[in-house]
Structure formats: structure tokens, C-alpha cells
């Protein structure tokens, strides 16, 4: 009965520019930084792009998961990043010839974790949030005992690749933009993507429409695990080695960029370009606070407040009947 009233509120333009805001916000902070704080405009943009790559990569996986509908979220991303980076470094063993094998091993690791998450959700019938939270604790333990005393440098070629530029733009950023375009096509122009969007709007209806809801859920959690693992391996190359706490900041930032980017946390509506806006915005903010001399504590406080504010703005009021 409330259908028509809902549609009226959806036509409201307020819902349109949410992901644009994130770009505008990023732009504003960027301008602020080099006008007031005296940062190099170009250097800051390149740095923002280089770091955003990793946030966007895990953000893509998180976005697909969140789009599956209420309660779907992958909290095992940080632990997966930590474990996969350790696996990648160990397999690569600092040798350029083993880079592909290392990446492959990390991916397999991420895929297994995604599958395990789905298995918990399906078999134990528990909310994904609890499933991925408890699996993240197990992955952490595996990571600690596997990576104990691991001090392997990444292969030189991998590090070089993560820093290389093409016409001044980080190659990794170009690759990730390409990945985002692929993700966007997958989301809107494949049966898998349509199923994700349909499931997020109404899981029962998706089943009755003949869509393979369960296979899609499995694929989505696997995708999220795989992207987190890929991110972990590349991040290890970027930061000169793996560490278990490396993924920690990606728990919130992966969700933050999804929310800031205009993807609906209630599911069913996703936005790929917004991920970039959100990632750039978060990076710019934290750089600005850094240059202004604020420590990590205040940065966290700010990020937290921004997330809550963004989510509060994008939410909708649904009256009880």
C-alpha cells in the first residue's frame, strides 16, 4: 500500500547527487590542501590515486556484497588482506619469476575464504555479519601462525610495477579504473549482476523470478574474498612487505567508500564511479588532517563522524503501520 508514496520520495532529486557529492568533497578538500596548506596539487593527486586504488579494489567486492541486501557485509576483508599478503610474499619468495604464482596463490586463498564465509552463512543460517566476523577471527589466527617472523621482501618487479606510471598516471590506477569499468558492465549487463541487484531488492521475488540467488550469493562472497586477496598481494608489493595489521584500515574504508559512493546500504542499488569519489575524498581528508598536524586519533574520529553523517543523509524514513 505504501508503494506509491515510496515512489514519490524516490523521484526527489536529493537521491541523485549522493555519489557526486563524494567527488565534489574530494575536489574541495584537494583545492583546500594546495591553496591553504600549500601542498603540491599534482603530487597530491597522484598520491591520492595510488592509495585509492587499494580502497577501490576492496570497495568493489564490498559493494557487490552490500548490494545483496540488508545484513550483507563482509567483515573478513582486513583479515583476508593480511593472510593473502603473507601467502603471496611466501610463495614469491622475493623472486621475480614467481610473481604470477604468488598472485595466484593469494587469489586461491581469497576464494577459499569467500567460499568458507558463504558456507557459514548458508549452513548455520546466521547473519553474514556474524559469519564474516567469526571467520575473520579464525583467519587472523591462521595469519599469525602462518606469517610468524615472516620478513620477506616483495620481488623487485612487483614493487616496481606498483610504483610505475604511464604518462604520469600510476599504472595500477589505470588498471583499477579498467577493473571498475568491467565491474560496472558485470553489474548492469550480465545475468549475475542483475541477480545481485534483484536479490538486494527482494530476495523472495528474485527466487520466484527464476534467478539463481544462492549461486549468486556464493559468487559474490568469493568475489569479495578474491579482490581483498589481490589487494593484499599488491599492497605488500607497494609497502615493501606484508604485515598482518596491513588490512586493518580497510574494514571501515571499504564500507565507507561504498556508502559515500551512493550505493544503497539497503541493497539493490550500486554505484561504481562513486567508489572512486569516496576513496579520493577519504584520502584527501586524511592528508589534510595530517598536514594540519592532527594525529591518527582525530583522523579516526573524523572518519567515523563522516560515515555516520553520510549514512544518515542517505537513509529514508519508513513509517510503521
Amino acid at each position: 500500500m505504501t508503494d506509491q508514496t515510496l515512489s514519490a520520495s524516490r523521484l526527489n532529486i536529493r537521491n541523485l547527487p549522493v555519489w557526486l557529492w563524494s567527488f565534489l568533497g574530494a575536489l574541495l578538500v584537494w583545492v583546500l590542501s594546495f591553496t591553504i596548506a600549500g601542498q603540491g596539487a599534482e603530487g597530491m593527486l597522484v598520491a591520492a590515486l595510488s592509495f585509492s586504488v587499494f580502497t577501490v579494489m576492496v570497495g568493489l567486492g564490498q559493494m557487490f556484497v552490500i548490494t545483496l541486501g540488508p545484513g550483507n557485509v563482509d567483515l573478513s576483508i582486513p583479515a583476508t588482506i593480511g593472510l593473502a599478503s603473507a601467502v603471496a610474499m611466501k610463495v614469491m619468495d622475493g623472486q621475480n619469476g614467481l610473481i604470477l604464482w604468488g598472485l595466484l596463490a593469494a587469489l586461491v586463498c581469497g576464494i577459499l575464504i569467500g567460499g568458507f564465509n558463504y558456507l557459514l552463512i548458508r549452513l548455520l543460517r546466521i547473519p553474514p555479519i556474524v559469519a564474516t566476523l567469526s571467520s575473520s577471527f579464525i583467519i587472523q589466527s591462521v595469519g599469525i601462525s602462518y606469517g610468524r617472523g615472516l620478513q620477506i621482501k616483495p620481488p623487485a618487479a612487483l614493487s616496481d610495477f606498483t610504483f610505475s606510471r604511464f604518462l604520469g598516471v600510476p599504472v595500477l590506477a589505470i588498471a583499477t579504473i579498467a577493473l571498475s569499468i568491467v565491474a560496472s558492465v558485470v553489474l548492469h549487463r550480465t545475468i549475475y549482476g542483475r541477480t545481485v541487484l534483484a536479490t538486494g531488492q527482494n530476495m523472495r521475488a528474485a527466487r520466484f523470478a527464476g534467478l539463481s540467488v544462492e549461486r549468486t550469493r556464493l559468487l559474490t562472497y568469493v568475489l569479495s574474498g578474491a579482490l581483498a586477496a589481490l589487494c593484499g598481494a599488491l599492497l605488500a608489493g607497494f609497502s615493501g612487505g606484508s604485515s598482518l595489521s596491513m588490512g586493518r584500515e580497510y574494514l571501515l574504508s571499504s564500507i565507507a567508500v561504498v556508502v559515500l559512493g551512493g550505493t544503497s546500504v539497503a541493497g539493490g542499488r550500486a554505484n561504481v564511479p562513486g567508489l572512486w569519489g569516496g576513496a579520493l575524498f577519504l584520502f584527501m581528508i586524511s592528508t589534510l588532517l595530517n598536514t594540519a598536524g592532527f594525529g591518527s586519533g582525530l583522523r579516526d574520529v573524523f572518519t567515523g563522524v563522516i560515515i555516520v553523517a553520510a549514512i544518515a543523509i542517505t537513509g529514508t524514513r519508513q513509517p510503521l503501520r
Binding site: 557485509v73 564500507i255 546500504v265 567515523g304 563522524v305 560515515i307 555516520v308
Partner: peptide, 9 residues
């Protein structure tokens, strides 16, 4: 999402 944001706060 709200409480995750608050956790950073």
C-alpha cells in the same frame, strides 16, 4: 554501518 562508524569515533 552506524556502529562501525562509531567504532572509529
Amino acid at each position: 554501518v552506524v556502529t562501525l562508524g562509531l567504532s572509529f569515533f
